[in-house]
Amino acid sequence: MFWRKFEERLFNFLIRLATIIIIGCLFVIVLTIVVKGLPAMSWDMISKSPSGGFYLGKEGGVLNAIVGSLYLGIGASLFALLLSIPVVVYMNVYAPTHSKFAQYIRISLDILYGIPSIVYGAFGFLIMIYLGLKVSLLAGIVTVGLLVLPIMARTMDEVIRTIPKELTEASLSLGATKWETAMKVLLRQAFPGILTAILLGFGRAIGDAASVIFTTGFTDNVPESILQPAATLPLAIFFQLGSPIQEVVNRAYASALILTIMILVISISSRLLSRRFNKNIIK
């Protein structure tokens, strides 16, 4: 009898402890990055590219990586969006009900979602060689775009699937074509979901390092064309952290802070956005 009560008490305590540990990790990580990154921050850090080489030069900031990451993130999200909207439209509008093929695409997207980014990196490298591309922003956009595609497509798909069937049927019964229904009813209804999906994809795209290491390369300059290599924030952190010079290591800390802030802003704003737009939807 005593044991029963004791066991219940013990686990009551343990489950709360486990939850606190898990949330605590998030706070400790963010706090560590802020404490290390804040002293290294300055206006130069976000307005200048490194001078004298990113590994040894003491002067300058990480503008090259900030701009590179933004280019890459925006490019990859656009690329993934252009591919995922048609697929989602096909799965939800054009595919016959209970279509085996649509079912297969859902499963294959789920599996693609689980493939690690280093494998995408290797695959992107193969595409690059096959197409005769050099290490460049374009190769990075294609690779990261493919990496982000499953996240975007499946997020949108889940949102569209929650839209009541009656809405689609009402539109079709009034004589609208499937395309018109998809564009004017489904995608409009799913707009907040699509926005969330884009932000999710963008966040993943600017944070990923293993896939760009092969394809986008690294450079001290802000890229001027899509065919040039580009620096990215994750790689700026990774490469500069190994430097023996303290100023360069500080640049890595500052990049980590910048990246963390970007990611936090994206993930919090996507939450707020979807809450706000949800008000305008026909339930």
Partner: peptide, 10 residues
Amino acid sequence: GIPSVIFGIW
């Protein structure tokens, strides 16, 4: 959503 490189530096 936190990128792996942030976990690494931490």
